[in-house]
């Protein structure tokens, strides 16, 4: 991936004006990318009158009232708990069955494997709302609506096409000889998979897991339709504060909620920046 250090870098020969332009352009981009987060966090600790003041203030009295109102008054902690249950459930099941399938798809050469991958690709492109009428109708009729298990199973299934494609590309990089050596040493297929292949797959599993986590954690469309009141996830619970532009305090609780949802994601990027980047480029650079 990285180029040898002795190659002439374009930066070495850049004229001054181009260097300046690059610097200004990149500074503007960083500002555009990060400013909404910075400002949202800043005003979440202010009273409405300071948060939306004319002219805007950089320094204003500090308050944690909105967080208190949201987490305790509106019981946002319950939504946090729901989000945790849903994302952990999705992550564990999705990766377990995804790893099994992806490993088989990476090692099996028959036509069925090929068609399975192709169908998974089509499923992956389906807009999620396409399946929603069926989910809502069927789970309502079955009396399984508004339950953790239901939402977890749905999100796992929707996530499978992506998961198996991505994990498979990681498994493809592990030489087949490794399985064969393990089997020669007396391992069964499943033993070889668990004892020999999985331990070297961790980077791939972490990367795929990050994206599975994001899908479950960020989902609004399905969660908001399949869960109700106290079972809502944090993301779908935001809808209650979304159109409260007339009620300043309600709006500010929404801001506090948005910051609360974002905080774990920022930590995630801090710790897993490398894996996220490698996941994004996985499908692209290798073809």
């Amino acid at each position: 991936m990285s180029q040898p250090s002795d190659t002439p870098n374009l930066a070495d020969r850049m004229p001054l004006w181009l260097m300046l332009l690059t610097g200004i352009g990149l500074a503007l981009w960083v500002l555009a990318a990060a400013f909404p987060f910075f400002w949202m966090t800043l005003i979440s600790f202010r009273l409405p009158v300071d948060a939306f003041s004319v002219p805007p203030k950089l320094i204003a009295p500090f308050t944690t009232e909105h967080y208190w109102q949201l987490w305790v008054g509106d019981r946002f902690w319950l939504k946090f708990l729901n989000s945790t249950i849903i994302t952990v459930g999705v992550l564990v099941i999705s990766l377990t069955i995804g790893c099994l399938a992806a490993y088989a798809l990476a090692r099996y050469g028959g036509a069925l494997g090929f068609w399975l991958l192709l169908v998974a690709l089509i499923f992956r492109a389906l807009p999620h709302v396409t399946l929603l009428p069926s989910y809502k109708f069927a789970f309502f009729e079955l009396g399984l609506w508004n339950r953790y298990e239901t939402l977890i199973v749905i999100l796992v299934a929707i996530n499978q096409p992506f998961t198996i494609w991505m994990l498979r590309s990681f498994f493809m990089n592990i030489p087949k000889e490794l399985d064969e050596a393990a089997q020669v040493d007396g391992c069964s297929r499943i033993q070889a998979f668990v004892k020999v292949i999985l331990p070297v797959m961790w980077p791939g599993i972490i990367t795929t897991g990050l994206f599975s986590f994001l899908l479950a954690y960020n989902d609004f469309l399905i969660s908001s339709q399949m869960m109700n009141a106290d079972k809502m996830t944090m993301t779908s619970a935001l809808s209650a504060y979304m159109n409260a532009d007339d009620d300043a305090f309600k709006l500010m609780q929404g801001v506090a909620g948005a910051v609360s949802i974002t905080a774990p994601l920022v930590v995630l990027v801090l710790f897993f920046q490398k894996q996220l980047v490698s996941g994004l480029t996985q499908g692209a650079v290798k073809g």
Binding site: W29, A33, F37, Y217, T235, A258, T262, V269, Q273, V277
Partner: peptide, 19 residues
């Protein structure tokens, strides 16, 4: 630069739009 760029991409879409 990569850290700042990743934020809009991975943030919850509803939150990103609201921000």
């Amino acid at each position: 630069l990569i850290f700042a760029s990743l934020l809009p991409f991975i943030v919850t879409p509803v939150v990103g739009s609201l921000s």
